[in-house]
Simulated scan of single mutants.
Amino acid sequence: MPINENIPDYELVRKLHGDDVDAFDQIFNRYGDRLYGFAYKYLKSKEETEGLVQDVFLKIWENRKKLKKESSLKSYLFTIAYHNICHLFRKKQIFLKYIEESKVVETKTIDLEKQLEYEATLSQVDKLIDKLPGKQKEVFIKSRKEGKSTSQIANEMNLSPGTVDNYISTALKLLRKQISGEDFALLLFFAFFFQ
């Protein structure tokens, strides 16, 4: 959809309150590239930046009913992006610390027990993903396993970016519900690789 600069942000937010996917697409078209440029300056990674932009728009869609028409949409989007960048940096530091403490860096090998544990966790995650309904499962795999962006998936599957983000958001909620709080390894894996 072409970007219509004549529609003010507050009008797009009003339409978004009514679950208008076209309004969501219009917001994505208007701010997607700007957010990408902003995030890429910090992350220096195409894949991480695409994931971050996708997550920002997922949050917009999930919270569409709570958005305030009088607030600055642009400011809200960039604030979410900034917080997500900070969160990513914290997550990387935790992960690097875990690797360091596990002496994976020094030994450059993973012992059999750790490898088996990792494979078991991966298998559990795959089983949970297999339980997702048809298109939702396909979209989720393309996004989180193949690393494709919202726009790539939308083009491949002939869906709107809003629908793609909606599928991913619903899938994440379902997966979170199924992961037991006691299964720390699975919870940690999910937090690192699927958020």
Rank of each mutant, 00 (worst) to 15 (best):
Q136Y: 09
Q136F: 08
Q136P: 11
Q136L: 12
K137C: 05
K137F: 03
K137E: 01
E138G: 06
E138W: 05
E138P: 04
V139C: 11
F140K: 00
I141K: 11
I141S: 05
S143F: 02
E146M: 12
E146R: 15
G147L: 02
K148E: 08
S149V: 06
S149E: 00
S149N: 07
S149L: 08
S149K: 02
T150C: 10
T150R: 02
S151F: 13
S151M: 04
S151N: 03
S151R: 08
S151D: 11
I153G: 00
N155L: 12
N155R: 10
E156H: 05
E156D: 14
M157W: 08
M157N: 11
N158Q: 07
N158L: 12
N158V: 01
N158D: 14
P161M: 12
P161C: 10
P161E: 12
G162Q: 04
T163C: 00
V164A: 09
V164N: 08
V164G: 06
D165R: 10
D165H: 13
D165T: 08
N166V: 06
N166H: 12
N166T: 06
Y167H: 13
Y167C: 06
I168F: 03
I168V: 09
I168T: 11
I168D: 09
S169L: 01
A171M: 10
A171T: 06
